[in-house]
């Protein structure tokens, strides 16, 4: 499996997570999101950007409950709750948003 951005092919693992994290660009995020059936809104971008910042700082993608707790703290309870996050990312906010953010699957996700 791979994605294509501007004629460039981006390699992924069998689940669609990109293999070289430095390949990521916002354009690629849009392409991955489309493949996932997700229409990127400002709220989606806020989560994706949060994940990228978290990874940059701690070198891990947070577990979903950590993600939701942190989002709740930084963006308020109307965004930082399970229901809303699953509306944004139906296949799981950690799993699917990490894929779009160009990060590895969160530790402990199967």
């Amino acid at each position: 499996m791979s994605y294509e951005v501007d004629g460039q092919e981006i390699a992924t693992d069998e689940e669609g997570y990109i293999t070289d994290l430095s390949d990521w660009t916002p354009e690629l995020a849009e392409v991955i999101a489309k493949a996932e059936g997700v229409e990127m809104t400002d709220e989606h971008w806020a989560v994706v950007n949060f994940l990228r910042d978290y990874y940059e700082e701690y070198q891990i993608a947070p577990a979903v409950r950590v993600l939701i707790k942190s989002i709740k703290k930084s963006m308020g309870p109307e965004v930082g709750n399970n229901k809303y996050m699953y509306e944004l990312f139906p296949y799981g906010p950690a799993k699917q948003a990490c894929k779009i953010a160009g990060l590895p699957k969160p530790t402990g996700c199967v």
């Binding site: 700082e57 070198q59 947070p62 577990a63």
Partner: peptide, 14 residues
């Protein structure tokens, strides 16, 4: 190899 020392700082979140 991956530098995982920053990850210790995330433990509080867990």
């Amino acid at each position: 190899v991956k530098n995982f020392s920053p990850t210790f700082r995330a433990l509080g979140d867990y």
